[in-house]
Amino acid sequence: MSYNNILTSFSNGITTITINRPSKLNALNSETIQELHEAFKEADENHDTKIIIITGSGEKAFVAGADISEFANFSVEEGGRLAAEGQAKLFDFVANLSTPVIAAVNGFALGGGLELAMAAHFRVASDNAKLGLPEVSLGVIPGYGGTQRLPQLVGKGRAMEMIMTAGMIDASQALQSGLVNHVATQEELIPLAEKIASKIMRNSPVAISAAISAINAGFEDGVNGFESEISQFGNCFGTEDFTEGTQAFLNKRKPVFPGK
Rank of each mutant, 00 (worst) to 15 (best):
A166C: 11
I102R: 11
N20Y: 09
V101G: 13
L110F: 10
D92A: 03
I17F: 13
G132N: 10
A109F: 06
N224C: 08
L7R: 15
P134V: 02
F74I: 06
T55F: 06
F91L: 04
S204A: 04
G146V: 12
A39I: 06
E78P: 07
Q186C: 02
F122P: 00
T8M: 13
K254V: 08
N20E: 01
G65S: 10
E78A: 11
I208M: 13
Q247P: 00
K41F: 14
V124C: 05
E240V: 00
F74W: 09
M162R: 00
E45T: 06
N96I: 01
G222R: 01
Y144F: 15
S9I: 02
I212H: 04
H47Q: 12
F74D: 09
T243C: 05
V154D: 05
G107H: 06
P191S: 14
L90I: 11
A61Q: 06
G234H: 03
A217L: 09
M164W: 03
S9V: 00
H37M: 06
A197E: 02
K252A: 09
A43V: 03
E45I: 00
V256D: 13
I196Y: 08
N20Q: 05
K60Q: 10
N235S: 11
I19Q: 07
V154C: 01
E59C: 01
S177M: 11
K50M: 01
E42V: 11
F219Y: 13
K60H: 09
G13S: 12
G56R: 04
E35M: 14
I208F: 12
S57M: 09
P258K: 09
A217D: 14
L150D: 05
P258W: 08
E227L: 12
L7C: 09
K254S: 14
S204V: 06
G222Q: 00
F237Y: 12
A119N: 12
A193V: 02
D170P: 00
I190S: 05
G155Q: 11
I33V: 15
G238T: 15
N235L: 12
Q152P: 02
M160I: 13
L138Y: 09
P255R: 07
T8Y: 14
L175A: 10
A64R: 03
L7M: 14
P100Q: 11
K156E: 14
F108V: 06
G80K: 07
V154K: 02
T15K: 01
I190E: 04
P255Y: 02
R149C: 01
V180M: 01
A66M: 15
Q34S: 15
G218F: 10
A119D: 06
V223P: 06
E38C: 00
F108S: 01
S231F: 10
L250F: 12
P255V: 04
P255L: 05
N12A: 13
